[in-house]
């Protein structure tokens, strides 16, 4: 069998991508004594104790629960407000539409570091520090613009004649939107939700600033516990592996839209 050069390039590249992840997995299945004591390419005495530690200790697994709560809240809020707005941008021209669309984009591009401190003060004033809703609202800063842009890109592909036919058939706007239009852009909604989920899931700076104990996300649990207990490498690696799972589970469904999502619905 002839091996094509492109297959070699891809194999090398994917190995490069997977090697560090493999190493993390390797570490998570070792005991701390084995990690610091010797060097081996695979776990000699396989242990699931690290995972057991995380899944049985509330101070660990609540980190995942907290993260999931605010991520899901954020995704629901973002998509709900973005849907009508994206429709407006894709179908009508109105006073200041271009400026508004541009202004939304600047929020996607805004560095979270700029917003960390003012957010802290704003949510302190509203008594929302250390609640899930605070993080969910803060993440709207970049997720709502993202959702609007992605959805607008998808809605643009739906012919306007469909709307017009529905008006003639006597549909009211909410009924038309829910019964006819949303099924047509189901793909777009899925992709937008996926990207909202993802960007909220990977963000740490804002969620760290806005939480202390009750709503602490997993990323913070990882940094704090590790520095306190003198580097528990095995548990740290296991916690890392567990954060990969949500992304890995859903990525198969959006694989053909990944590029489109990253390019804010364009491409």
């Amino acid at each position: 069998m002839r091996i094509r050069p492109s297959a070699i390039v891809m194999t090398v590249y994917i190995l490069f991508l997977l090697l560090p992840i493999y190493w993390l997995l390797n570490m998570s299945l070792k005991t701390n004594a084995e990690i610091t004591g010797g060097f081996s390419l695979w776990p000699r005495d396989l242990t699931f104790r690290n995972f057991a530690t995380i899944l049985s200790d509330p101070s660990w697994y609540m980190g995942y629960v907290n993260s999931l709560i605010y991520v899901v809240l954020n995704t629901v809020i973002s998509i709900t407000v973005a849907l009508p707005a994206a429709y407006a941008f894709s179908r009508y021209r109105f006073l200041g539409d271009k400026h508004l669309f541009f202004w939304l984009l600047t929020n996607r591009m805004a560095p979270p570091a700029v917003f960390a401190l003012p957010f802290f003060q704003l949510y302190s004033a509203m008594n929302l520090i250390d609640t899930h809703i605070a993080v969910a609202l803060a993440h709207c800063l970049f997720n709502v613009p993202l959702a609007v842009w992605i959805l607008e890109g998808f809605m643009r592909g739906v012919p306007k004649e469909i709307d017009e036919t529905a008006w003639i058939d006597g549909y009211s706007f909410p009924r038309f939107f829910a019964r006819i239009f949303m099924p047509l852009i189901a793909n777009g909604i899925g992709v937008a939700a996926f990207f909202c989920f993802m960007f909220s899931w990977v963000e740490l700076l804002l969620s760290r600033t806005l939480t202390t104990t009750v709503a602490k996300p997993i990323g913070v649990t990882m940094t704090r516990t590790v520095s306190a207990s003198g580097m528990d490498w095995g548990v740290l690696a296991a916690a890392g592996i567990l954060t990969l799972i949500p992304g890995a589970l859903v990525i198969w469904f959006v694989r053909n839209y990944i590029a489109r999502g990253f390019a804010l619905g364009r491409v």
Binding site: T36, W201, V202, L236
Partner: peptide
């Protein structure tokens, strides 16, 4: 191929740091 390539894009930023910390360390990293 697509899915494996996209995998690093979906890893939380702090875990990316952790992965490379563990991968690069002289004492325990590959």
């Amino acid at each position: 191929c697509l899915v494996l390539m996209a995998l690093p894009l979906l890893i939380p930023f702090n875990v990316v740091g952790t992965i490379w910390q563990i991968f690069g360390r002289v004492d325990i990293g590959l």
